[in-house]
Amino acid sequence: MKSISTQFHRRLMIRFSKLARNVAIALAIAIALFPFFWVVLASFKNHHDLMKVPPVLLFRPTLENYQVVTQEGFLHFFNNSAIVTLGSVALSIALGVPAAFGLSRIPFRANRFVMLLVLSVRFMPYIVFALPLFLIMANLGLVGTRGGVLFVYIIINLPIIIWIMRAFFDDVPRELDEAAYLDGASRARVFFQVVLPCALPGVSTITILSLIFAWNEYLFALILSGRDAQTLTVGLTRFLGGMETSVRWGTLSAWAVAIVAPVVLMSLFVNKHLRRGFTSDIG
């Protein structure tokens, strides 16, 4: 009799802890998602609904806030962001993937020095780069040009690409290259036709990661983009400066959604790749 009751008790406990766990997970997801959810909701509210206390969940949705996308220079900022992001990611991949291959496959003395350089750039406070870059670029007339900002974004992308791709290349068995070398293949051929194809998941991972980092960047853009090359993030805060009144909350929300939605959607679609990027360099 007693054993039956303890068994029942234990089962109850398991069920309860499972329930508690699910509730905790749901709560964590809710907290993680809430700001995004709320700004999407707010972007469809009219001025009146936005100011209601307590806040309303049910309201008549309006698209009027999204008119901002066609005005206030939004497209100009969007173009700048897109060009700077895509350009710097492409450039960083072109530079970083071969370098990662070299670091993984060619033994040389300064190898560690290069890795240390890569690592220090990755962990350096970015403001340390930003000031001197501002002075140098001002002298060269590069402040306020997309090319200048694009080039500076390499600081963010290149170290991550080299670091992560090196881990991916290290995972490709060396026997493959050796077989190819025995067949008389050149280094370039081994890189392009043997090792790189095996490390393609790594390439998509770093592409996604660096696209996100470059798109989200703020500090360099704030200091270096001058008047003509301002990105979406800078545009948003500039736009906010003059008109941080409740009247503009709706417009602000629409703008915020337009910046964040591409990144969030992309991250959901390729989440496994993304997670691998964040976790691949544990070692």
Binding site: A28, A32, I212, T233, L236, A256, L274, R275
Partner: peptide, 26 residues
Amino acid sequence: NLALALMTIPMIMTPVVSALIWKVFL
């Protein structure tokens, strides 16, 4: 996988935008 993907979102969101949402709405 879905749960992890959703929990990753704060890190993916543009920091400036997140900060703005927290400031204005929260």
